[in-house]
């Protein structure tokens, strides 16, 4: 059995198997939403390639039309056609049912991880100079207050981390603090999870409200220590000297 339909089916199944079963052997499993997205992309690619010219369209769609029209079909082919015509709507129905049926599972989240900070925190800059003493002090404070959750290596793998869902942020990931300005971190540390705005709902953050225990000076120095320890730089609009 060969032809563009067969090749297309192989590609689709291959993409699905790779994303669903092979990739998780090396890293964390992908959520269904992402797998669906990539498979849909692969399908659109197959459709585009298959319908580009008249011969490719015939080679790709011709067998499908002939199969579904049932012209001249007998025996197993006819049975297969009937099976497809019965099973496909059932499959769609089952999919719809599983999507809509009440479930005790919480819905998929599209929580805003980085909500916009309140106006009073916008434009703040670290008032303390970036000198070794301040960085060292910041690292020391980090070790005392932050590392139990965010880890001694700034990787979000502190001893208390397994107890949290979602887990503490990994500062060594270039997609976290490196994307943010220092003022943003100051807000998040100072106000904690309870200080998240409405757009950050559901408020799933166990981050303490550190303003209760730490002075602003300590918080700014912790930020300095965090960036230095994680090997990242804050987002700025000026280049450092």
């Amino acid at each position: 059995m060969k032809g563009p339909i067969f090749s297309g089916a192989i590609i689709l199944v291959g993409v699905f198997v790779f994303l669903k079963f092979l990739l998780p052997l090396f890293t964390a499993p992908l959520p269904a939403s992402l797998i669906y997205l990539y498979v849909a992309l692969a399908l659109s690619g197959i459709m585009i390639y298959g319908t580009m010219s008249a011969p490719s369209l015939e080679a790709f769609m011709g067998p499908i039309f002939r199969f579904l029209s049932g012209k001249g079909q007998t025996g197993p082919a006819q049975t297969a056609r009937l099976a497809v015509l019965v099973l496909f709507p059932l499959l769609v129905g089952w999919q719809t049912y599983t999507k809509l049926a009440p479930s005790d599972l919480p819905p998929a989240e599209n929580r805003t991880i980085h909500p916009a900070p309140p106006g009073e925190f916008v434009g703040l800059s670290n008032p303390y100079p970036k000198v070794p003493e301040n960085i060292m002090m910041g690292k020391g404070l980090y070790a005392a207050y932050c590392s139990p959750c965010h880890g001694a290596n700034f990787d979000g793998k502190g001893p208390a981390a397994p107890g949290f869902n979602p887990p503490p942020a990994n500062f060594s990931d270039p997609g976290t603090i490196a994307q943010l300005q220092e003022s943003y971190l100051f807000w998040r540390i100072k106000k904690g999870g309870v200080g998240l705005p409405v757009e950050g709902m559901p408020w799933k953050s166990a981050m303490p409200r550190w303003e209760v225990e730490l002075s602003d000076e300590f918080i700014w120095k912790i930020i300095m220590g965090e960036y230095d320890g994680a090997g990242q730089s804050p987002r700025t609009w000026e280049e450092e000297e």
Binding site: A28, P31, L105, R111
Partner: peptide, 28 residues
């Protein structure tokens, strides 16, 4: 690919959050 993925609770647990450790880099 979004930075924060749409994931169920169980999927997020397996990923260790809504950022995928490998594909999360595509989100920035």
């Amino acid at each position: 690919t979004p930075h924060s993925l749409v994931a169920s609770l169980e999927e997020a647990r397996k990923m260790g959050g809504t950022h995928h450790p490998l594909l999360g880099v595509f989100g920035v």
